[in-house]
Write a protein that binds this DNA or RNA. Structure first.
Lengths: 337, 337
DNA sequence: ACTTGGCACTCGGGAACACAGAGTGCTAGA
DNA sequence: TCTAGCACTCTGTGTTCCCGAGTGCCAAGT
């Protein structure tokens, strides 16, 4: 059904269309790529490809344009990820190396990715759930208020102000801090609830109300931040692009954490560093856009995901190369710190 | 030169143009607003207004459109800030009251403002410089690494990982923490450098290299974060709007902290809570856009600025009302926490 | 059985054109 | 000083026409 030449024609159509943004006709195709066959033959192949739903024509007398299905075949079988140039790699390295804290790493990463791909870049903050507790701090603010600060091994810091049910002296706070730390240090965030379950019983009766309050805030923090923070950059790159859907819809989706989350998708459990490509209608919400994403994180533990969003008509090999490279470098940076 | 009726005509032109987005002609004007004069008279007034540069006509046979100068006069003398409705005020209050920490306050504020004004909202994080130190924390991570956490009275938290020049036992770290806190607690961030200047000399010789390292990181943190973080929301509202400049330029400016900073402008020293309105070409960078901004902060100390950015053709009274109201509420929230 | 050249057909997009309508400026009169 | 009338000037829209790119199909060639 799909012999080698038909595939070559499809590949040529995708490449030409991506670079010119104009429906590609049989004549131009036969000329530009040395297919060694006549335009008429190409037309026959095109008819077959259209029959199978890989390409389509906007109007009767226009050239062909790839469909989502066509892009899918292209990505899966007709192209290979294009590695970055040496200069680009060095640029990434130096740019990311200058980051001073987690916030900075994420901000730099998302900007870098946007600039590199000329698309909208999306980066999810490393999840709390798979991180471990590095330190818990209780800071007395006034006699009935303390600030709870939770520091994780990924460098993330969460803080909450807690109103205590009663006055608690600083020494008791200090004691409590010590207990909390000895109990939680190094333990995974997901196991915090069970670790602290019996804590009130192990403390003097008079401390229990305060402890209960603090613990409830602590647990709440873990749960609340479970829906992870996501940032994006490069919205300006959307200005030129033409979507089948409205620009407004895309911008709205970008500001909705939940939608972005879904778009980035799940990390495949078997190969976490694999690239996910979602093309056009394969996307849960934003039809007419494509997403290239992957997991990242230190070592083999995937912490979160990052990727780019752009029009269906994008240069997939290059974009995939950039996403993969950035994911690797940021993983490396996170592992080092 | 500008009698009352001419001013009334200008006001009517601005109002009509803002609501219809179409050049407004003399006939429609005389009808819709009960000016009690004929279109011909209105035409004479319009000619005078155009002569003085307050309005202009896109084409010879079209209606009139306000110029930047016209909007300026309108804002300064012909309109008054429109207060929010009770329902809107309650909505603001409940929405902001749910914030759990500073990040959350800022995020909620910017979203709220974007939704309320249907423009792009911009909020600057409260500056560090005017805040005071609430607590300094040193957390030992390994024998040669500590994490420095700085908590300010606005709830902001900064952290840095520090590589020490030598091994320092936990007890010495704890001692150092106590010294730092007793020295810095409650003092303004801008006075931190002088406060710690003589610190090394007051400590045992063997601690000095470590202290020097820690202090240099601490001071660096203060300086680095001096260029303040700015966030925005509501970019989707730009999709419908028509700018004289490209949408791309606006989006690019929004992602440039520095440009945003300039756009928000300086807080007027005498009346910090005054509304700043910059119209079209009055803007330093983005000609063709208008900005309504104001300072906010707890008490009478202005901490930072917030505002909205939109097309020159915007409903200034409503926008100004929303910006002012949001600034007040967020100031209130910050003062309480 | 595939490939190729030829040919009639389709349709989008641009140019040329006419036209209605809104809005103006000007002038003369109240 | 305001008003009414009138001629004028545009823009935007709808119509028509035509060019050209590109197609599909068919018949002939390899």
């Amino acid at each position: 059904m799909l012999d080698d030449r038909k595939l070559a024609v499809l590949r040529a159509i995708v490449e030409d269309y991506v670079s010119t943004n104009e429906p590609v006709g049989s004549k131009a195709l036969a000329e530009r790529h040395n297919l060694k066959v006549s335009p008429a033959t190409v037309r026959n192949d095109m008819a077959a490809l259209e029959e199978d739903g890989y390409i389509t024509q906007p109007h009767t007398s226009a050239g062909r344009v790839p469909t989502d299905k066509g892009y899918r075949l292209f990505v899966d079988r007709l192209s290979q990820v294009k590695p970055l140039s040496g200069a680009e790699r060095r640029a990434i390295e130096t740019f990311l190396a200058g980051a001073v804290d987690l916030d900075d790493v994420v901000t730099r990463t998302v900007r870098l990715l946007a600039q590199l791909t000329r698309q909208v870049a999306v980066v999810q903050y490393p999840t709390l759930t798979r991180s471990t507790v590095r330190h818990v701090e209780l800071v007395p603010l006034s006699e009935r208020r303390v600030m709870l600060v939770l520091i994780t091994n990924t460098g993330r810091v969460e803080q909450r102000v807690i109103e205590l049910p009663e006055v608690v002296e600083d020494t008791r706070i200090a004691n409590l801090r010590a207990v909390l730390n000895s109990c939680l240090d190094g333990c995974g965030l997901s196991s915090v609830p069970e670790q602290v379950a019996d804590l009130p019983e192990r403390l003097p009766v008079e401390d229990r109300p305060a402890v209960a309050t603090i613990l409830s805030v602590l647990l709440e923090t873990l749960v609340e931040r479970h829906d992870e923070k996501i940032v994006f950059a490069g919205a300006a790159n959307l200005a030129g692009a033409d979507f089948t859907i409205g620009l407004r819809d895309v911008l709205e989706a970008l500001e909705e954490q939940v939608v972005l989350m879904r778009l980035l998708g799940e990390t495949s459990p078997d190969i976490p560093s694999a690239l996910t490509v979602r093309i056009g209608s394969e996307n849960p919400y934003l039809h007419g856009t494509s997403i290239v994403a992957t997991g990242y994180g230190s070592g083999d533990k995937q912490l979160a995901r990052l990727g780019v969003l752009g029009p269906t008509r994008m240069d997939y090999p290059v974009t995939m190369g950039a996403v993969r490279a950035v994911a690797r470098y940021v993983s490396q940076i996170l592992a080092a710190s």
